[in-house]
Design a protein around this nucleic acid. Structure first.
Lengths: 390, 390
DNA sequence: TTACTAATGAAGAGTGTTTGTATTTCTCTC
DNA sequence: GAGAGAAATACAAACACTCTTCATTAGTAA
């Protein structure tokens, strides 16, 4: 990022951004401490906080007593100044979560949907789920500062699903356009693996890690990439689609699990993995063999990711993340010989919340970018999203 | 990058950086025009230029007459304020180029080296080559602001060659340490493909492109990656090493060329490709078949890169770049079906200068980073490298 | 001489820091 | 239990730095 210079008002905007940054992610903080954190003088920070207070981004709390000396004026970021909606459009279920600007979850709602549902039906469930979460949060659609939806498939920068194997009927859908019909705030659409990777960097195993490859493996396998802690989409939104290369075994990986003879007849595809891993955990040889084959195929694609990107960390998520104890060992065994330098490898702890959490984070990032952008006057930010009550 | 705030002196440092940026890459420019470019007022820019003039980063040129009105004070960046040395340690030859801070080549020197040379011999040739280029430039080692060497193999952040198949005797060498024994300025060591990618983004086909995959194919095949226009090294410097995955055909790709029956007996490995492509160009069926096989293997690895990164552009360089007319078509034919969205594909025009140019660019980037860094006082910059005469 | 462009210099506005003083609370002592 | 002192913060004035605007001056071509 290149910083443009300017006059002193620009310096003030920079310092405002600095102060806000020092304030975020903290609990209530005294003005003197805040000044120290922001590396600015106390009078400056006070006047900046006054500005933020007036704009509704900051609230003042009753001073805490008990300390020696005059009690500090406590201020905190007003997380409730805005809310975002994150949506995970899965094959079998759709999840929606409403969070405030602190990232704190306010409400969530999940609805099941048939894997065979058509475009219209899935869209209807999507909207019903979002409405459900909104209703539970007590908010109105017009209160939202940003909406982000995650879906399988390659998603263009404009939010169109260009290609989806997981949801064939989804291909060609202008999902962002569909959402914009219901929400007047900025609407983002992103690949689900990418969002899960973001979630991992936020609240998961990849916190603070710069370069991360996240592999979401379940009924289908995909990957999301963080570079420098930020999402790497690629020119057409197709980054991480290594699974589309027939050479690597991701497309056939689930077949090993499905072929496990110990499965009860009529097992639903989304339940297969759990059953096989459970049997493998119990020591069933055929199940262990299936897992071994699965790990082998998974390792090929992960190796391609690792050798291309050389990430600091590989995180395994999706359905298999509940079975890390069974999968991690065989995977390491197959992966390490393929890598020049075996990467750190962990299993996600976010479970089925990864994508929706990532959607929330992506939406929050969109808001934060404006909040911190020194080219955007403070007064413009709220009108860019909505009207913030003071 | 997070900008820290501060007092007005910080604003001045930002504006200094802005002015310098507006000045770089331009020919001589009048102060009024410069002020417009920097989006600052004329008096401000004048005083900033005065500062840069005093520090030796900027020179004043005799005003140009012929225009109507009072002639403008012309100023320009003093490219001669510093020089960098770029080195390409190849299997068969070592190249060194001295360039000034404008990136203008001042001198170059090349020496041949046996592919079988040992570590000591290659190091000796390396230093002789560097000395040759320095001597031709009329500069002393102490005049250099930065040195960058490119070599095959995985290079750690500290400049140690952790693993090199191309130069086995190089593995484990602390190349940065070796260079630091001769140069007191900052020393950088980087993988050759990475540097070639940088060169491509500077003066080659990838100018202005954000995400680039550069494939250097010759006796061996490797890749370098630019993300957001900047080099992506990966956590251990191993990014782009997709060729190490046996699954993709990069390791066996040259064997198709070597197996071409039309080769004269005793052809040197570095000459093979040129001969096969020449015969293929002439329509020789066996040569065309060899090229076809070569393209097939190359395409697999490129597809892995493309599906992982989704770059805006793929650039083909190295020995094969002279034969783009013969190779590009078969490559497209094999590559496109493997990609979800076939990427733009071009052939480098930098020839055998790619790596050494990239080394120069990498060294220049190191200098520029300090020049533009608003945390570094202007006075400290020259002492960080050397003493700049005024 | 006139038109045009650039340079110069002074006035003014905005911003941040420093410094001294006032305020508020806690703790210790009598 | 009341008052003095200590500690931490809040507040306000003075000062320094930087940028911009605007009017004036300088230099060149037509």
């Amino acid at each position: 990022m290149t910083i443009r210079g300017g006059d002193t008002s620009r310096l003030r905007r920079i310092n405002l951004s600095t102060t806000l940054r020092a304030l975020r992610g903290q609990g209530p903080i005294g003005l003197t401490d805040l000044a120290r954190r922001a590396a600015l003088s106390r009078p400056t920070v006070e006047s900046l906080v006054e500005e933020l207070l007036a704009a509704g981004w900051v609230k003042e709390l009753p001073p805490e007593t008990g300390q020696m000396g005059r009690p500090a004026r406590l201020v905190a970021f007003r997380g409730e100044a805005g809310h975002v909606l994150g949506i995970d459009v899965g094959s079998y279920s759709i999840r929606a979560t409403v969070a405030d600007l602190d990232g704190a979850e306010v409400a969530r709602h999940t609805e099941r949907v048939s894997a065979a549902a058509g475009r219209a039906e899935r869209l209807a469930v999507l909207h019903a789920t979002a409405e459900g979460a909104l209703a539970a949060s007590g908010l109105d659609a017009r209160d939202l500062a940003a909406v982000c939806a995650g879906t399988t498939g390659v998603v263009t920068a404009g939010g169109v699903v260009r290609l989806s194997y997981g949801l064939p009927e989804w291909t060609g859908l202008d999902l962002a356009g569909e959402l914009r019909r219901h929400y007047s705030c900025p609407v983002l659409v992103e690949n689900d693996c990418n969002l899960a990777a973001l979630a991992e960097g936020w609240h998961g195993e990849a916190r603070g890690v710069s370069d991360v490859a996240f592999v979401l493996s379940g009924v289908r396998t995909g990957a999301g990439i963080l570079i420098g802690g930020k999402l790497h989409r690629g020119g057409h939104g197709g980054a991480g689609e290594i699974g589309a290369l027939p050479l690597v075994g991701w497309h056939r990986a689930p077949s090993h699990l499905n072929a496990y003879p110990g499965l009860p007849p009529g097992t639903a595809p989304e339940d297969t993995a759990g059953l096989v891993f459970a049997d493998a955990r119990a020591g069933e040889p055929a199940a262990r063999w299936a897992v071994e084959q699965y790990a082998h195929d998974l390792a090929e694609g992960i190796a391609a990711l690792v050798l291309t990107l050389d990430p600091d960390l590989v995180v395994l998520g999706g359905g298999v993340s509940r079975s890390g104890d069974v999968l991690l060992d065989p995977l390491r065994r197959h992966l390490d010989p393929l890598c020049l330098q075996p990467p750190a490898l962990t299993v996600s702890v976010l479970g089925d919340q990864a994508v929706v959490l990532g959607a929330v984070r992506h939406a929050l990032n969109h808001v934060d970018a404006q909040l911190y952008d020194i080219d955007t006057p403070l007064a413009d930010i709220k009108t860019n999203f909505f009207n913030i009550g003071v």
